[in-house]
Amino acid sequence: MINFNFKPENELEKEGIDNIPSPEDEIVCPNCHRTEKKDDILPFKTCTCGHHFRLKARERAFLFFSDFSEMFQEEKSEDVLSFPGYKEKLEKARALSSEDESVITGTAMIDGMRVAVFFMESLFMMGSMGHVAGEKITRLFEFALSNRLPVIGFTASGGARMQEGLISLMQMAKVSGAVKRHSNAGLLYIVVLTDPTTGGVTASFAMEADIILSEPGALIGFAGKRVIEQTTKKELPRGFQKAEFLLKCGFIDKIVHRKDLKYTLKEILILHGINKEH
């Protein structure tokens, strides 16, 4: 077992940043407890201690890319199984995240290079993947294949959306098939794992990229911590399932600070011979 030295986890971290009471223009860092002015952590929403606050899907689209042009937004989730409470949860998620789904897809430019992009939205039902999320990502890879574009994706997900039953599980296979076809054509897929990436997303397209990058400190795993503790009756090592842990285990190519991400993506694209449009 690998041991890591981490700051002790504290109550704030367990409860999540949403529960921390603070004035509108201030934010408490769950890692170092410093109170920061929201304006001071901009533009990358990172604390001076290195903590990366969660970003919304659309914030990422504008932070790292230009000319984000959204596609497939006409797809909307429906309550096919008449699952108790699902309709209400969808409505709440739409209000909370200002998005229609847990992922947005489209094309964007980075340093003059056109790429297909997806960004998962953790505020939308914990970024869970149902039919529509799977469909949008599948269509994105198919579009990228026919237009010979690289794909850059940002994952943030609690896994499959159980309110859609087996259909949500099948999305893992569906997306994987599209990733494979894109890959077989010699095209590049880069994924950036962000906090949190777990369950069915980890067990599919999060781990299928040619190059797997991660934000520092992101939670990345297959099974949930509580499930593992219940199954094994063992205490989990410090830093378990953090990006740094996954890197040491050999499942991540590189951990990249947000301020360096655009540059890193650009360099990788150039080394893969991606042409500039202008």
């Binding site: 094994t232 399932q241 499942f251």
Partner: peptide
């Protein structure tokens, strides 16, 4: 769902 399974990449 175990510690070793996660370390060796179940996902």
């Amino acid at each position: 769902c175990g510690i070793e399974a996660e370390e060796r990449g179940e996902g």
